[in-house]
Simulated scan of single mutants.
Amino acid sequence: MVRATDGRGVFPASYAPASLVMQIVGLGLLIGTLATAREGSVAVWAVYAASFACWFVFHFLVENRPRAAGIALVLSAALPAATAGWAHDSTAVIMVSVVLGRFTAWHRPRTAALWMVVGGCLLLTLLTSAAGGAGLGDLAGYTVMLLLLTLLGLNQRQYQLRAHQAEQLLDQANLMQQEQAQVAVLGERARIAREIHDVLAHSLGALTVQLKAADSLLDNGDIDGARARVQRSNRLADDGLAEAAAAVAALRDDVIPLPDMLADLVEHFGRDHHTEVRLTTSGTVRPLPSGPVVALVRAAREALTNAAKHAPGGAVTVALDYGTDQVRLEVCNDIPRPKFVDDGPPVSGYGLTGMRERLALVGGTLETGPDDTQRSWRLAVEVAT
């Protein structure tokens, strides 16, 4: 947006047409008044000429030297006000009214200075007019004329100030939106960096442990044990690649639909652990942001890993429900022992505490514990959408 500057601040260039109209109207009124003046005094004409010159000086200096321009405009009003009582007609009063209208329409003067100038010029005009023999009717008419044009100028001033304030509020709103967008981008980058870091740190750490164990078993001649460790390492590598792919997909906002990701997870888990896993989906399926999708898949993976660790071979059910304003994921598995024990983070997860922290980042909640029958362990996750 192109803008014009002045001594007090920055005003949109859209104000220029209104200001130009006021200049043209004011100039036309001054020229018309002077052209029809019935004045025989050379001294009064000299005052009119000086006032007219100050009017032009104001418009010449208003952009670059507003203080000097303001002095010129005050002089343009004060000179005819001082000679109103000796003029042969109302030309001086009309000139004072026009100049005061322009002065009060100017946005730069402070309110106190504005009323001081208006009051001073009005008082000077009435005093000199009374001294020149003007009657009460003439003085009342002069007052009405001065106040009328002054009020018109004040109305224009208020419009400019309101427009300026609206422009400032718009700039502040745009700046706030830009800052919010930047914060959102930085937050998303931090989240993705955290996800990738967790995937790499856990996957590589678990692989290192398994491979070192396999190497130790080979040294002891336990070929079967070493083979099992290598096979376990292979599964860990596959899980790490899958989680890394999910994190990268979240970065690109190219996430596979949640039911498809859960179906793939359930299929691989059932095949790898020789476990019966049943997946059900209810409600109207709809696209979700990448953050909640990755968090829900991570929670399902954690729950399945806990089921394999604490209740191997038991049946598992995974229920996904799309509600009106939230998505709920519930994983239930049989409890072969009286009590579930969270004895540390499993090899392909980050523990229930870490899961709660990551769900909180996307507005989700986590509940764990036995169901009403005390025969199944239930993990329930809700994410607002």
Rank of each mutant, 00 (worst) to 15 (best):
T275L: 05
E63N: 11
I335D: 12
A184M: 02
G291C: 02
I256G: 04
V316T: 15
R38L: 00
P336S: 15
N333G: 07
A82N: 00
L122V: 15
V297I: 13
D215P: 01
G9V: 11
L79W: 07
M1A: 14
V93F: 00
G363V: 06
N333H: 13
W45E: 02
G354A: 08
M355W: 03
A380M: 06
C332A: 15
G314A: 13
P80R: 04
E167T: 14
L122P: 10
R337Y: 06
Y322S: 07
A249E: 07
V118G: 12
V316S: 10
G70H: 11
A16E: 10
R328H: 04
K212G: 12
T385V: 12
D171P: 00
L217M: 11
S290Q: 02
M261A: 14
Y322K: 05
M95R: 06
D372T: 15
W45K: 04
R298G: 08
V316Y: 09
D171C: 03
D371R: 11
V42L: 09
T5Q: 13
T373I: 07
K212Q: 09
Q158F: 05
A213M: 10
V96K: 05
L279G: 13
L379S: 10
S41W: 01
L218C: 14
A299G: 06
S216N: 12
N174G: 02
Y322E: 09
I196P: 04
R232G: 15
A213T: 15
L204V: 14
L139S: 03
A247E: 04
P80A: 05
W106Q: 09
A380Y: 04
K339E: 09
D89L: 00
R3Q: 09
H59V: 09
L169M: 11
A299D: 07
G26M: 06
R67P: 01
R227Q: 10
V98Q: 08
D264Y: 02
A163S: 14
L169A: 11
Q182L: 03
T5L: 08
P109H: 10
V21M: 12
L170G: 07
L170Y: 07
V199K: 04
Q182T: 05
G135D: 04
K212D: 12
A92K: 00
L204N: 09
P109R: 13
Q23E: 05
A247F: 03
Q168C: 03
L366T: 14
V118D: 10
R358K: 09
P338T: 13
Q178P: 00
D253R: 06
E243S: 13
F340V: 11
T280K: 09
A173F: 02
R301Y: 00
V248N: 05
A308M: 08
A228N: 13
L149A: 09
Q374G: 13
F103C: 06
L30F: 02
A247C: 12
S14A: 12
L204Q: 14
W115T: 15
A246F: 03
A78Q: 06
A166W: 06
A206P: 02
R271T: 10
Q177Y: 00
A300T: 14
Y350W: 06
R375C: 04
P80W: 01
P66T: 15
E243P: 01
L241S: 12
T143A: 11
V21A: 15
I256Y: 01
C54I: 06
A50M: 07
D224Q: 11
A315C: 06
G313S: 11
V117I: 14
G70E: 12
L241M: 07
H268G: 08
A384S: 11
V230D: 08
S233R: 07
R301V: 02
Y15A: 07
L20G: 14
H197R: 14
L207K: 08
G9Q: 08
